[in-house]
Design a protein around this nucleic acid. Sequence first.
DNA 1: ATTTGGCACTCTCGGCCGGCGAGTGCTAGT
DNA 2: ACTAGCACTCGCCGGCCGAGAGTGCCAAAT
Lengths: 349, 349
Amino acid sequence: MAETWSELPERAQALLRVLIDRYTDEGAPVGSRVLARMSDLNLSPATVRNVMADLEDLGLVRAPHTSSGRVPTELAYRLFVDSLLVAPARAPVDARRLESILREAAQDDPQHLADTASNLLSSLTRYAGVVTIPSRARALFRQIDFVSLSPGRVLMVLVTNDGGVQNRIIHPDKPYTQDELTRFANFLNDRLNGQSIQALRQTLVNELKHTREEIEGNLAEAVSLAETAVGAVEDQADVAVAGQVNLMGIDELSDVERMRRLFNAFTEKRELVSLLDECERAQGVKIFIGRESGSPTFDECGVVGASYGVDDEVVGVLGVIGPKRMPYDRVISIVDVTSRLLSTALARQ
Amino acid sequence: MAETWSELPERAQALLRVLIDRYTDEGAPVGSRVLARMSDLNLSPATVRNVMADLEDLGLVRAPHTSSGRVPTELAYRLFVDSLLVAPARAPVDARRLESILREAAQDDPQHLADTASNLLSSLTRYAGVVTIPSRARALFRQIDFVSLSPGRVLMVLVTNDGGVQNRIIHPDKPYTQDELTRFANFLNDRLNGQSIQALRQTLVNELKHTREEIEGNLAEAVSLAETAVGAVEDQADVAVAGQVNLMGIDELSDVERMRRLFNAFTEKRELVSLLDECERAQGVKIFIGRESGSPTFDECGVVGASYGVDDEVVGVLGVIGPKRMPYDRVISIVDVTSRLLSTALARQ
DNA sequence: ATTTGGCACTCTCGGCCGGCGAGTGCTAGT
DNA sequence: ACTAGCACTCGCCGGCCGAGAGTGCCAAAT
């Protein structure tokens, strides 16, 4: 049953490719007559039928009912896609325009950049585009501010060098005056400038607590305040999703319950993130076809994902979610190109 | 054709009410037999039929086909709902729990508060909950910061007294050093403290520009920087939406194209805002039934909205979007209670 | 004058049948 | 090794029928 694409007889490859093409944009089973005509192999329908019978034995095609054309299986898509990945055909989209859009968006904050990228993905593919927002862990500390809102409520604003702003309202045990808070902020800004957020916590715990004695009185409070704040910020990973509606009206997905679960995943985001996380480890483009995703939510979907980052350091993941029946070649190169461009846009910031 | 509910004959009222009740939770036309049995009026089906014929003449009910039960028209819902609004029956939900949740959320920033409220609305009604995020225009200036990210890219962070944080990256004509920027910020913080954002622009334009000469050199730049920033912030109105998926599987809406448009409205938000805006003017609960909304997107929907605010000053709008066929009494009181509680939670902040 | 029972009529819905078309598998012939 | 032919299998569509639900109207009853 397990084969690789290239091990298939020449003719079978050709026919299967045509079958996949046709099925991908018609969505209906394809019969031997059509197949024979579309392939330029000059074969009679009968011959095609024989080949199909072979492919059926290999688990690559199946007939929904005794007598309707064939439909490619997930396995067939898998092999086909794998063969694409070996020799990637690049750039059906004009990278020029993409690049300028992304570069411009990179001028703005990371959130906006992710939004832009997911919009691009969805409008290029007409499926749903997903982009994780770069974790702040990797960014560098730029500035922290404490603003007293009311007694017992302090707004913390943390700025990173990429222009990301995190804010959170914290409720310290003791009330502080704005003056005290400002002193705290100044103190922290002095010490922490240029550190990565990732390292921040350690710094706070170790270095500062060691020197606690030297620090006059309640500046130690500043440290604990900052700890609360950083802790809250560190592990927040968000996702930008665009073009969900594109998935509506695709008939494989149009089952109400299935659609509901899908959209739930888009709003809850949890499941989405865990799916995309798997792309992080893989390098290059990673693809899930149907049940490969593990989650029944995406049973009928195809997912094409890739990570992006700077200097071999992955900072985020992006991808496209569509129906299983997808023009993978197109989508793959779109995802691929976008991830590269996003990386460079991020790098030269 | 135009009537008011109370002008209807007693019996017609009762029957129509039962019809609406029944239709609301079954979604199917209701026949005279059922109607006769459900109403406690002890009438024969035949009599009911006569009444129905009258109601049909008045445009309050109609029969989908020659021989199926009756369905209430939009007009019937309208009159019915109006009659509800006159003598509002309150509180089918325990306001206690709601209040504590909202008060807690009000401790946090406005965005979070709106999220919480829309989640409440949607989970209580099992429809979609919508809450506009209080416009910052009304909030008071608390603090501004300029952080230099790279030459030519300056991050502006504006904090309001409600804990709202607005940030935007601006590209000033000239590059400034961080020191200069800090001086700008200090300068502005001194002058603007406590002003409403709304008034800010005027202040900036008038007062400061008048005294421009007195101000040393490029502090005037600070003003123009701030202007850019405030302008960007002022007119940004966002909306929190929750529970969209609840609308899936409601069969009146399950037409693919209609659903698509609806979800589009939820993501684009533009149309949503303009719909809710109409609730701002009305006081108390405002209701759109079907085509009353104006937009074909919500043709098959019912919308129940109310404004909220502090001290008779409207700061935002919230509402519920569901199918036309909705238990309006329940939904109305939920929306009503929520808007009140949100207002008080906001007030005692 | 209102209400009711009766009756004929209408319309939907589900099941059933039969023909059509598409497509297959197999076999025999090239 | 391919192909032509043939019998067969389904799914789909339209028509038909019967059951069920519900109506409108009329004439009788209260």
